[in-house]
Simulated assay, not measured.
Amino acid sequence: MEVIKSKEFIADRAWGSKQIANMQGITTKLHWTDKPYKWHVNDGEEVFAVLDGVVDMHYRLNGAEEIAVLEVGDIFFASVGTEHVAHPRGEVRVLVVESEGSV
């Protein structure tokens, strides 16, 4: 049992994380960042939930770049093959659920 105060979590580097759980190969991690990630496609599906701050989620749909503005409580679901990159507006904390070892 553990209680995690997500707003108090700070990593020592951008996209640093705290693993919360690994349930049969599906990880749940709390990430802190103040810098964009990189364009990538996950090895499987990904759930990305904003807990603190605002994230501009860039993704490609039929070859065209789109941007979804994600605020606290918003969730982005990346299906298999979805190319995407998160751009935080300042500091953010996000919960990411994905296959263990995914990019």
Results as ranks from 00 to 15, higher is better:
V41Y: 08
V97C: 09
E2M: 13
M57G: 04
V47K: 11
I20W: 00
V55T: 06
G81I: 11
L61Y: 07
A78F: 10
E65C: 02
T28H: 04
S79K: 15
I20S: 02
F9Y: 10
S17R: 07
D56W: 09
K35R: 10
E66S: 05
V47S: 14
Q19S: 04
V41P: 03
V80D: 15
V80W: 13
E2G: 09
P88L: 05
K38H: 14
F77M: 13
L51V: 06
V103G: 04
D43I: 14
V54F: 10
H84G: 03
R93P: 00
W32V: 01
Q19N: 02
E83N: 09
G73T: 07
S79T: 15
A14H: 11
L70Y: 04
F48S: 02
N22R: 00
V92S: 02
I4C: 06
I20Y: 02
E100A: 13
E66D: 08
Y37Q: 12
K7G: 03
V72T: 14
Q19L: 08
V103R: 12
V97R: 03
K5W: 05
E2T: 10
G81R: 12
M57E: 08
E66V: 08
V85Y: 10
I75Q: 08
R89H: 15
E66F: 09
Q24D: 14
K5A: 02
K5L: 03
D43V: 13
S102A: 13
V80L: 14
